[in-house]
Design a protein around this nucleic acid. Structure first.
Lengths: 207, 207, 207, 207
DNA sequence: GATGAATGAGGTTTCATTCAT
DNA sequence: AATGAATGAAACCTCATTCAT
């Protein structure tokens, strides 16, 4: 990996940064942004308070770095998942599988966002700042392009704007995962991607 | 209205309470719960700090009252909207129309949740969340019962669990409205409910 | 009684004042001066806050009135007790009996003073303000005059300044009563005044 | 002294703590616990408010530390004073001398209790009181043991329970010192311990 | 470079007092 | 005269940030 080529000093710094971010994620997700102090993060991560400020300009900055990094990983994973297969339906299935996987594996991160928003059923993307919002829109574009290509192929009917379909699919997926998180017994994890896809594939009204 | 029958003193108190809640909603939605001080609310509402505490035990209490009141109104409106028509499709259309209307008319409230959804203050809503979650699930039940009745009527195909369809429809509706809020020109307001319903009604895959 | 001659309005006012003072004594003795609010006193006494301020200029004033009134009663009782008998020893016995009685019957008042001072064995008179201090000194004078008269009679030896003896007797009495209050089983109530007097009457060192 | 062996940082911290306690004692004794704010203590001691809270969890904690420390010193001094001489009478004289000395040298501390005795803040001392009361009783036990030993030696007559005599002596001593503090000209400081002891040694009634 | 003690502004909340009704 | 809602100053305490070591 590229990291190995970095000078030792640089690698050490990166490792420390990761340590800090991981601790912060842990604490933020347990207590919420405003109920975690910088001293608490520093203590838990076993650094001095001042050291935190060598890596991040301020608390907000630390928070942003944390979120952006998680989103990076997330985006990367999804992008890889929809690059491989040719088949549009398979791409969508992969997307659902990978998003679900990451969701399950990053519950602290998910909780960080959800605490507030679930009450009225807003989902993860709510409240993202401009940077994140732009990235989310770009990400939706990738999903939309699957629908687009499917429509061009005549594999999909043109029932709505592809971008709009992407939004719909993503939000339904979010909602499913949140339900599962909230009450796993009542709402089982959608193991089979088709559970979700079918909502879009099988029209509800008999023709 | 019944209010007119209340003694004048009582009416006055209610008016003040509304004033406080409205101001708080305004400020919370602009800056987020933790970035608004009680002093600020009091000043903006033109009351003394202490007066706020005559009406609400503490900041959290004020917040809860605010949220619960808004949810009450919202729930009531939706419930009325889906009671009237017999036709299931028309019920769904009404639901979409009314939810959209209330969304548009209560943007400060909507923003309150967006502003908050940065992982702020878990504990604040510790109690609130449970209450709200239950209410949300109960609300979904009402939507689900529309799908259920439609399936029993053979107006709808049984493509998924009715409750699950309710979640899907609600989340897609939320997502659409948020998109519109974010970028009204790019994502026009879904004036026609069928724009959203069609996603569920017309299967995407040609048969 | 003289009260009956007062105009009804005036009598009513006095009754209200007593009500307020009694409630205040109750609360102060339970929680301490600073932990009782004027609204609390008003509510408990079933008056409006403002009414309290018609009777007492402010909280401090209410407190002073409370203490002075209790001291008045106390002084009066003691004075009566040492007026009657001719015999100096009997006067002292009466004084001890009556002080003990009032102590027992006014535990709330006693507690009001004691809460703080017992820890280092200061007694009731500690912390009294100038007015009260003067009254306390005057009261001691009365006790001192008993010793004085006893010495003149040759009933008592002149082992110390009479005033000083008064102080000593009073402080020993206070201490005994406090011990009893603190741990009634361990330190029984000095039912027989001679228990205390003997300390002064029987020299400790064998001659 | 052991202190000199502590690392410099540690010594510095101790010095600061002492500074804070001394300032707090000063202010508390002048105005009483509830009339001194943490800000005031911090300002007077030339620290920031927050620094106070690094040393003491809260105001109550600061107060407790203050009182306990003073009591420790006091107890230690008295204990030393009554350990040395064999002679019981000399022990009592030493006790009176040392208690008087410490009283005179710690007037702020003495005043702290006088100032407080207005029934302030029961709860604050709920815990403190128990602790202090126990210590006071233990201390009395030490004085009592002097009387006890004197009685066993036949140096003292058995005119009362030794513990009870201890209480009496201590309370008379307190009263004398308070009188002197109140009106030094009128009540001269009992330089000679026998002034007080005689009250107990010479029976008042001629035999 | 790392440390963590010190800072002090700012938050929530209480309550003595006033004054319009 | 009595009321009690309204006031707002001031208390306690936290914590993001800095800087001397």
């Amino acid at each position: 990996m590229a990291n190995q080529k970095l000078p030792r000093r640089e690698r050490e710094r990166l490792r420390q940064r990761q340590e800090m971010l991981a601790t912060a994620l842990d604490l933020f997700s347990q207590k919420g942004y405003h109920n975690v102090s910088m001293q608490e993060i520093a203590a838990q991560a076993e650094f001095a308070t001042g050291t935190l400020y060598k890596f991040f300009q301020n608390k907000e900055d630390l928070y942003k770095a944390l979120v952006l990094e998680q989103c990076d990983k997330f985006e990367e994973a999804i992008t890889r998942a929809i690059e491989k297969p040719e088949d549009e339906v398979e791409k969508l299935r992969n997307y659902i599988r990978v998003k679900g996987d990451r969701f399950r594996r990053n519950l602290p991160f998910v909780r960080l966002f959800l605490a507030e928003s679930r009450g009225v059923s807003f989902n993860i993307k709510a409240g993202l700042n401009d940077e994140l919002r732009k990235r989310y829109y770009d990400f939706l574009e990738k999903i939309a392009s699957i629908f687009d290509s499917g429509m061009k192929n005549r594999r999909f009917k043109e029932i709505a704007d592809p971008y709009y379909l992407a939004v719909a699919l993503d939000s339904v997926l979010d909602a499913s995962l949140l339900l599962w998180l909230d009450a796993p017994e009542r709402f089982p994890y959608p193991e089979d991607p088709d559970t979700i896809l079918n909502i879009f594939f099988k029209g509800l009204i008999p023709s």
